[in-house]
Design a protein around this nucleic acid. Structure first.
Lengths: 219, 219
DNA sequence: ACGGAAAAAGACAGATATGATTGTCTTTTT
DNA sequence: AAAAAGACAATCATATCTGTCTTTTTCCGT
């Protein structure tokens, strides 16, 4: 996609418009739906083609719209990517919170839950963006704060769910360990660096690790 | 770079030529040197710009050559990438073998050694290629066998170094665990998903893990 | 029903990467 | 020394993506 450095020109009609009275009109609803369609198409393209080959014509085609329609809603590719990133970020957080609201909490549920998250397209798309951001300053400036926020909320969520860990020196380690192993496995599977057969033993080993790091079993 | 599907046309002058008597002529030496320069430049570009933005003009410029010269030696971008991949692969294996030849072997040396490997540009470049290969069948067909070979040799090397692990059910787990954690951390650091401060605790924890998985301390 | 704004489609120009071709100079071969 | 081959440079033609602009269609509000 290659984010073009956001130019200041053309006052961008959309933000300038008063959102208040537009909110509930029928057209606004339709517009919101179309925007959602475009964002979904963007995520699908990220998974199918990768970030570099996700072009505006492909997104438009994937969404079943013309490029003109796309431009009407997003003005340029950067805006679309930005919206997609925000959407992905919120989806990741939503899914995480939903999982946290389930009645049964075992420490190792975190492993299962997060692992399932990582199997979904959203993570693949996110990783595509993260890798691209390494060499794309614009993209990085959008992504970095969201990554920080995610890690922070991830930890906050886990801490809230399992208060017995509070103040444990092992907490940060357990979190980093979980994220590193699970995300590392997810990436390795996608990029062919790892054998599928090793997944289950790794998951079980990680669960054991977390249990043995838990304050209840070690002080 | 976007590998173009290798067309069968034009019988590719290079492989057809008898390499035997060309080996020591001045031109052959010059050519080999130029090819090496181009391959190095390709790897540097992969690190600097990422796979997608690694274009033939950029590689030529990085190598201080004209694009024509590049085409002369590699015919098209695919051939260049292919050569770079092979070079990277062999470099990874060489570095690994070199480390294995050192006199002192402790099991946890494997962690230190491999971690140092992962800090080098070669791994960044390799990961760029691995990610790109997910959505590029041509690239994948080149990369996959090499990834398999690397994993195989990695394991063989480790097994040869530490024969006491032979036949241990934990061996595969320890290998996968090491690769997943170390590579996962390296990627996370590059893509901003992880805090540098967590690296050392993770390394030490991994070493502990490996020791407790070792047959000598557990049967 | 009708005027008009939003939505959608389509056309156009600039930029860039790629493949292919041609030309020149140097080195090797005979 | 002449001929052949290789190394390298420069240029052209094509394709595609991007951003911008213009035109058509849809449909809401009075």
């Amino acid at each position: 996609m290659a984010l073009s450095r956001t130019r200041a020109a053309r006052p961008a009609p959309r933000p300038a418009r008063p959102a208040a009275d537009r909110t509930r009109t029928l057209q606004a609803a339709k517009a919101a739906q179309t925007r959602a369609r475009l964002i979904d198409a963007t995520v699908r393209c990220l998974v199918k083609y990768g970030y570099a080959q996700t072009t505006t014509p492909k997104v438009a085609e994937e969404a079943g719209l013309s490029r003109g329609a796309m431009v009407h809603h997003f003005e340029n590719g950067s805006a679309l990517i930005k919206a997609a990133i925000t959407e992905l970020h919120e989806k990741r957080l939503r899914a995480f919170r939903r999982a946290a609201d389930r009645p049964e909490h075992e420490v190792t549920d975190l492993v299962e839950t997060y692992w399932r998250q990582l199997q979904k397209p959203a993570f693949i798309a996110f990783h595509e963006l993260a890798v691209a951001a390494r060499t794309d300053a614009d993209l990085a400036s959008i992504l970095s704060p969201l990554q920080d926020e995610f890690r922070e909320k991830f930890n906050a969520q886990a801490e809230a769910l399992f208060p017995e860990w509070l103040g444990s020196k092992n907490f940060a380690l357990a979190m980093t360990l979980s994220q590193t192993i699970l995300e590392g496995m997810a990436i390795s599977l996608q990029t062919g660096g790892m054998d599928q057969a090793q997944v289950d033993p790794m998951l079980r080993h990680l669960e054991q690790q977390i249990l043995s790091l838990a304050p209840s079993s070690k002080g």
